[in-house]
């Protein structure tokens, strides 16, 4: 059976996707700890398939201001991943890298934005590497594009682009503890359906 939307996935396939989410998150957290050069306690990532509006509610409603880092996937797996980050993540990056306290994601300057984008780039690379190693597929990622604004407006970008594919996305909720600070990193992953078929095929999952 051809996969047309996320709704066509059976429970086993959903489990596989969630497990891939877990493996990617672990890799990503390891790279985060290396960069921040402190030990990190990693919580078990929660991976769910949610509708866009459920993702928005999960992050505090449509008008909650967050940072969106948009990364495009190309190669064998095509699609989009997007990090959705709040103040405390930005603050951790800017204080660790150059001792600057961040209070609002709306007040970030060029330097801060570029540091956060680099962080996103490293996390996304680690994430995608995990999937690539597991499957033997070639996946390339774009440099992250940055936007700090209302989460509803940010989420409209993937919602519009994938409107015809699905109203659901894979939502990955990571909790880290870095020297007494709890940091949450949220990511959504939207692979194109053809890429998913290929991914399942490589992993020996029946389609």
């Amino acid at each position: 059976m051809a996969l047309n939307t996320f709704k066509d996935l059976n429970p086993i396939q959903m489990d596989v996707l969630r497990e891939i989410g877990n493996i990617g998150s672990g890799n990503s957290a390891t790279s985060l700890s290396q960069i921040l050069s402190s030990s990190i306690d990693i919580g078990v990532p929660v991976v769910r398939d949610l509708e866009y509006n459920e993702v928005i509610d999960n992050l505090g409603g449509p008008e909650q201001v967050v940072i969106g880092l948009l990364i495009r996937l190309s190669g064998d797996i095509k699609g989009m991943m997007m990090y959705l980050l709040k103040e405390n993540f930005a603050n951790k990056v800017t204080t660790t890298f150059y001792g600057k306290k961040t209070e609002s994601v709306l007040a970030l300057d060029e330097m801060d934005r570029s540091a956060i984008c680099e962080m996103g780039n490293i996390m996304a690379s680690a994430y995608v590497n995990a999937i690539a190693q597991l499957t033997g597929l070639f996946i390339d990622i774009s440099v992250p594009a940055f936007c700090a604004d209302m989460v509803g407006a940010i989420m409209s970008v993937p919602a519009v682009e994938f409107a015809e594919v699905s109203d659901r996305v894979l939502f990955i909720d990571d909790m880290f503890r870095v020297s007494d600070d709890e940091i949450r990193s949220n990511m959504i992953l939207i692979p194109e359906m053809e890429s998913l078929e290929l991914l399942f095929k490589k992993l020996g999952v029946e389609i």
């Binding site: 449509p62 509803g152 407006a153 940010i154």
Partner: peptide, 11 residues
């Protein structure tokens, strides 16, 4: 009464 729609991005 009024109407409201939240967080228009590219919409």
């Amino acid at each position: 009464n009024s109407l409201a729609t939240y967080a228009l991005g590219s919409c």
